[in-house]
Amino acid sequence: MKIAVLSGKGGTGKTLVSVNLAAVADKAVYIDCDVEEPNGYLFFKPTSIDTKKVTVQMPYAKAELCNGCRKCVNFCKFNALAYIANQLIVFDKVCHSCGGCALLCPKKAIFEKEKEIAEIQKGVSGNVTVITGILKVGELSGVPVIKMLLDVQDADNELTLIDCPPGSACIVMESIQDADYCILVAEPTLFGAHNLKMVHELATLFHKPHGVVLNKCLDGQNPSEELCRQEDIKILGEIPYDEVLGLLNSKALIAVRENDKYNKLFDSLLQTVIKEAQHETVVNS
């Protein structure tokens, strides 16, 4: 079972929720898809690290073969190619490595070279297999890294927690594509509710069964909770705005491994999520 944890903005508690749900399970895989700023490994401190390079294909032209027909330039929807002064210019940072230009070239003048854009680390932390994607500084798209991250995982039947990047853009869509269930983490603010609305729309658009974890809950109004009631979104659980939890987090400790109260809270949350996800699978099959 694959469970994606997402939120419309950073800092709402995606990592807190996904790390603790993975840690409280008997056995789980944790995948950090927040490749621009992965931080789950800071909590898990995995050992026996196995490293893999992520590369993409970058086109280049052999000038002596190119006849300047510009089929490639006109084909590229990302405008990564220009043909100026009898020379093809490739803009690596604009290129999405689709390979179309090389396929299309009637003179077979376009070749591809590998370019390293990220590293994937796989390690172990107690009951959890920790897989982390680390995008190189200056790289613009983490999508190829996420594709490979989700392939690294061996067995489909294992409980997998996918810690998504913030927001609702391409990189998040890629992260939730194979998920069986989405947990949306939300803050009790107007801004939090606005961002929750965005990821709720995304999960709905992708036909992903989903529910909300209300994080940083205080007494009084919670605009995110109100949104859930209005839109009839399932509330999976609540995490209090608590100094003890904050302190554990600030020391990069995993709450469920340190504190009984949070062990119970996340264990019960995990059971709820699994039940919800299984229920949805039955209903939809």
Partner: peptide, 28 residues
């Protein structure tokens, strides 16, 4: 969606332009 500067510059170059007047220009 992206690479607008590259595409636009290609058009400008193809028109045989010698001088572009603009308030700013990106690196690509």
């Amino acid at each position: 969606q992206g690479g607008a500067g590259v595409r636009a510059a290609q058009v400008i170059a193809d028109y045989g332009v010698k001088a572009l007047i603009a308030p700013r220009c990106g690196e690509n």
